[in-house]
Design a protein around this nucleic acid. Structure first.
Length: 423
RNA sequence: GGAAAGAUGGCAGAGUGGUCGAAUGCGGCGGUCUCGAAAACCGUUGUCCGCUUUUGCGGACCGGGGGUUCGAAUCCCCCUCUUUCCGCCA
């Protein structure tokens, strides 16, 4: 959620930057400003009335104490008369506050000024590219066929017990999952992240805090009996750990890493992109989260980007890093790098990680602050990234490392799988 | 699922209708003392909103919402959560 102060200060700049995200904000902004003005005017009125009422109450108190109860009667009456008016004003104020909030929540985060405007994939800038493209022969198979051939993943069985998009991993396939999770967690811990094992279900306040509600309502599985949501990413519970907190400046940066299963309804996405592991309702992911001082959050973003790149190197996968254009970034992000791994057998790039700086957008919702040197509380910046999401990594590993004898496991992973080849 | 107790400032914990944003202790910060540190002593120490924007003024907040009253942390109602006991159980 954007801070009202920023909109008040320079509404034209907000409109200009939101246009980078292909968001036409002019109407909402003018509604917000009008509402804000009304709200402040009303706030002043309410405060004045309350001040008067407080004064009378104090005077009555004095009289009661000094035994002049009779004199208090007219004051009591006056105060009682004020009451109805105050109540009406307060109700009106609450309505305005709610309206303003409802409007504010509709605005996406401002992209950083260095973000390119645009709304198409072609507007994304390839900022880095590395790794050797595998030259596979004509017999190269896509991962869903490899998964069947080596009995690693059973999609049909998953459909039977749950539905499409819930794969069952078996044998070396299951072991590969566990190995990747362990590798990713160990790397994160080595990089200074605190390992967290969060709940997989969260309440409404948490879903709101990181921006899943109301923006992505309908994308989460909702357990209505208890009003809990299955997490779409560990970002949600982990970032919300710090909701409503005022950290000390010397506690920054907070670095947390968490493995979790992730659940996404993916309502409305069907078609060729959903084949195999490309798009699932349940998948595993290790997420890294940082809470950082606003002055250093972009250094931190680069650090996180380098961490993710290191993982892909260990897995010996060719990858590229995209700096997303405004229109391709998420609602809540100010700056996003996407990592894509080349899938040789599908002959396309698969998104395997997304590393973002949300600046104060999440922290403003969550009231996540820190106390600076001046003793004043201010909003912290939040960042997160996948490090990494498993399914497309598994897809790329299977496809890129397939050989005539089987699928080669990169050395860094062998310690975790306990085998060098999938046969 | 049943029963009971509870929710107060960073933490612990007092406060049962008026001067309570709230005692006290711990912690934090500043100072005295010291070569320095500890101890001791003194002072200080919440968040949000509005107006002024330098000092300042007003308002709100004692889990959340509503009510009673001139006046609520304190009384009443509803909700949420926590703890303990019983039941069930990986």
């Amino acid at each position: 959620m954007l801070q009202i102060q920023i909109i008040r200060k320079d509404p034209e700049e907000v409109i200009r930057l939101l246009a980078f995200k292909k968001f036409e904000a002019r109407d909402i902004i003018s509604d917000i400003l009008r509402c804000d003005e009304d709200r402040r005017k009303l706030q002043k009125q309410v405060d004045e009335q309350l001040a008067e009422s407080n004064l009378i109450a104090r005077q009555v108190g004095e009289m009661m104490k000094s035994g002049r109860a009779a004199e208090a009667a007219p004051l009591k009456e006056k105060s009682a008369g004020l009451k109805a008016g105050i109540k009406n004003l307060e109700t009106e104020l609450a309505t305005l506050e709610e309206t303003q909030f409802r409007l504010l929540v509709q605005l996406p985060n401002l992209p950083h000024p260095d973000i390119r405007p645009g709304g198409h994939a072609e507007d994304n800038e390839i900022v880095h590219s590395e790794g050797r493209m595998p030259d596979l022969d004509d017999q190269a198979l896509p991962h869903w066929e490899l998964a069947a051939k080596y009995q690693l993943i059973d999609f049909e069985l998953g459909s039977k017990i749950s539905g499409a998009g819930f794969p069952v991993y078996k044998g070396q396939g299951a072991r590969l999952q566990r190995a990747l999770v362990s590798l990713f967690l160990d790397e994160a811990v080595a990089a200074g992240y605190l390992e967290i094992q969060p709940p997989l279900m969260v309440n409404e306040a948490s879903a709101f805090g990181t921006g899943q509600l109301p923006d992505k309502d309908g994308q989460m599985y909702h357990a209505t009996a208890d009003n809990l949501f299955l997490i779409p990413t560990a970002e949600v519970p982990v970032t919300n750990l710090y909701r409503d907190l005022i950290l000390r400046q010397d506690e920054l940066p907070v670095k947390n890493a968490a493995y979790s299963a992730c659940f996404r309804r993916e309502a409305g996405s069907y078609g060729k992109d959903v084949r195999g592991l490309n798009r699932l309702h349940q998948f595993d992911k290790v997420e890294i989260v940082q809470i950082q001082h606003p002055d250093r959050s972009y250094e931190t973003l680069e650090e996180m980007r380098e961490h993710v790149a290191g993982l892909l190197r260990k897995l010996e996968l060719p990858f590229r890093i995209l700096k997303l254009c405004g229109g391709d970034m998420s609602f809540t992000s100010a700056w996003t790098y996407d990592f894509e791994v080349y899938s040789a057998a599908q002959q396309k790039w698969l998104e395997v990680s997304s590393v973002s700086n949300f600046e104060t957008y999440q922290s403003n919702r969550m009231k996540l602050r820190f106390k600076g040197d001046d003793g004043k509380a201010q909003l912290a910046h939040t960042l997160n990234g996948s490090a990494l999401a498993l399914p497309r990594i598994v897809a790329a590993l299977l496809e890129n490392h397939q050989t005539g004898e089987g699928i080669r496991i990169p050395p860094a992973l062998q310690a975790y799988t306990g085998f060098e080849m999938i046969r």
